[in-house]
């Protein structure tokens, strides 16, 4: 166990350069504003004097390395600046809205994995069958769907035409009260409070946006699962297992599947990247009060501190997710253990 702990720690250390890169790029992005940021932040009615004041206040009179140090110090203290439009600290707003985004993203990922993995594996095991062709068609169509368009199409069909889904306006219909805040996930919180009606209401709101996002992430996962499974099934060790008379179940679901999961785990990093991006679009379509729609609103009114804070938050979240993938991979594949 000691060796594994060491490995996990070393993987965490290896995430530091990525984190540093993220901070440097976000700093660069804040300094790339067109024109003089001080002029911009001072507003249209600014005088020379007030611009100079703001410049000093923002530290823009310092050298670039010093500016970076200030920026990094502010980050460490959790200071992402204040939103121009609401005047609230960006970090607070992001923290308040993050659970909504996470609830949506995680539900979508669970949903798509639950469908894509069995689909890809079955398609590979029955290569050339109708399920294989269906999988191929679904995969190609799936990566071609613009998320925002899928979302709108689902709203039209399930809300306007069929009336099955509630209005695409946020996490909970106004007839319900928000459940007590424990995890921040409405469905979980409501269930924990024993309020099944609210849980149902939250679930109904969640199902369309989560399906939209899941449809988008389904394709890459199914594609990779199928390809990895095909590769595993045609490898030498499967032939050895067959020649030793191992059962079909053992060969497919232990030998091949376990090996096929390795590239799939790696692909999940890319899928997370796509999901977090598509999340922004889905939140806008469904007026979902997460950090994505916050960023879109901020973009419209050119609220830069809010947008940069959002980009940084997403990047840190993504680095963390990648770290989790890395650790899982290390624990699953013995070959990575000896090379550290």
């Amino acid at each position: 166990m000691g060796q594994r702990t060491r490995l996990v720690l070393s993987r965490m250390l290896q995430a530091l350069p990525a984190l540093a890169g993220v901070v440097i790029v976000s700093f660069a992005l804040t300094r790339m504003l067109p024109g003089d940021p001080a002029v911009y932040f001072a507003g249209p009615a600014a005088t020379e004097q007030s611009i100079a004041q703001i410049r000093v206040a923002m530290g823009l009179d310092l050298s670039l390395p010093m500016q970076f140090l200030h920026y990094a110090r502010d980050l460490l203290m959790g200071d992402l600046g204040n939103s121009l439009s609401t005047g609230q600290p960006v970090l607070e707003e992001l923290a308040r809205r993050l659970p909504a985004s996470l609830e949506l993203t995680l539900t979508a990922l669970l949903l798509s994995c639950a469908i894509a993995l069995p689909l890809g594996v079955t398609a590979a095991v029955h290569q050339g069958s109708w399920i294989d062709h269906a999988c191929r068609a679904l995969v190609t169509a799936g990566v071609s769907l613009p998320t925002f368009f899928t979302g709108i199409a689902l709203i039209y069909v399930f809300y306007y035409l069929l009336g099955w889904a509630p209005a695409p306006l946020g996490r909970l219909d106004f007839v319900y009260l928000s459940p007590p805040d424990v995890t921040g996930f409405y469905v979980v919180d409501a269930l924990m409070a024993g309020d099944f009606e609210t849980a149902g209401g939250a679930m109904r709101q969640l199902i369309l946006p989560a399906s939209t996002l899941a449809l988008f992430t389904l394709a890459p996962i199914a594609r990779m699962a199928r390809a990895a499974m095909l590769e595993a099934l045609s490898s030498d060790y499967i032939r050895t297992a067959k020649a030793a008379g191992l059962s079909q179940r053992k060969i497919v679901y232990f030998y091949a599947f376990q090996n096929a999961m390795l590239p799939v785990i790696t692909t999940l990093g890319m899928v997370f990247s796509f999901t977090l991006g598509a999340n922004v679009l889905v939140e806008k379509v469904f007026s979902w009060p997460g950090i994505g729609s916050y960023a879109v609103e901020a973009l419209v009114v050119s609220d830069y501190a809010a947008v940069q804070g959002f980009v940084l938050a997403m990047a840190i979240l993504f680095v963390a997710l990648n770290l989790v993938i890395d650790i899982v991979y290390t624990l699953v594949d013995p070959r990575t253990r000896s090379t550290t």
Partner: peptide, 14 residues
């Protein structure tokens, strides 16, 4: 290290 679409948003915003 960035979610790519989010990075594109940040770049255009900046």
């Amino acid at each position: 290290a960035f979610p790519l679409f989010v990075l594109a948003m940040g770049i255009v915003a900046a």
